[in-house]
Amino acid sequence: MSIEVRGLNKKFGDFVALDDVDVTIPTGQLTALLGPSGGGKSTLLRIIAGLEKGDSGSVNIEGTEATHLPPQKRNVGFVFQHYAVFKHMTVAKNVAFGLEIRKRPKDEIEHRVQELLKLVHLSQFSHRLPSQLSGGQRQRMALARALAVEPTVLLLDEPFGALDAKVRKELRDWLRRLHDDVHVTTVFVTHDQEEAMEVADEIVVINEGRVEQVGTPDQLYDEPANDFVMSFLGEVTHLGGVSLRPHDVEVESSPHHAGSIEGTVSRLVRIGFEVRLTVLTVDGEEVSVVLTRTHARALGLEEGSTVFLTPAAGATVIPRMAVAG
């Protein structure tokens, strides 16, 4: 096991940023720390890197007790949201920095820098200053710089957060492919669940300084531990005491199933191939439902129609009691 965090606590003044966090991050995988802004993801990542100190608890990196090691002794690569490029150095000098600190021979450094710049597709920019690069290029340079020192683990704090949507998507795919080539244990922070689901092998959901759940994207989606995880990974609605996804609500025009709940369509919106309903049940609940256009036409739905709702067979359903704090 590559990174083990045990009983980690961190306060800023009175504010609890991390509350008794235990996480194990597997070797060689791409792990996402996912959660809403302000949840403590960056704080956790920075403590792993040694850029911040926990109040109590321990951090172990690849079998080395790292809790009290300064950042420069941890051999981690860190990539910052705003790139943290060395503005006064050329692209090549930026990438070479860690190797120069380690006093590697000149020709080795040069060779390695060329190799890395090729890997991140920046070979032709090696003599430029960072100010002459685009945001996406700067972040690729920062990544090459972090990889240059062959870190035990690569930590990325919202690496694509400052980029526009299109570049973000490109870099996301590129990171996944890069990881498949390089296989360094990688942890990246994101608040975008789509990004996490698409890229990560494993996701750690963090909210209000606590770990809510750890699992593969499928596990989190299909077996959410609680209401918070469920709602953070996709839309959620409530029907008869359970939480479930709107597309997992079965709609019928007559009560075929036992225990189906009667309601009236109060709103109907067609968006492309789907139809979104708001149903007001006889119990006074507002339920959101998503179904295909074809299905809705077959049922002859319109605003004011009476419908009967049941959770679909095999749907992910959790009792509403488990509402996360």
Binding site: Q72, G77, R145
Partner: peptide, 20 residues
């Protein structure tokens, strides 16, 4: 941030000061 990046790349405090 530049200083932190330097630290994470292995530079100690004096190296970070003089180089970054």
């Amino acid at each position: 941030e530049q200083e932190q990046a330097a630290r994470s790349l292995g530079a100690n405090a004096p190296q970070t000061f003089w180089r970054i």
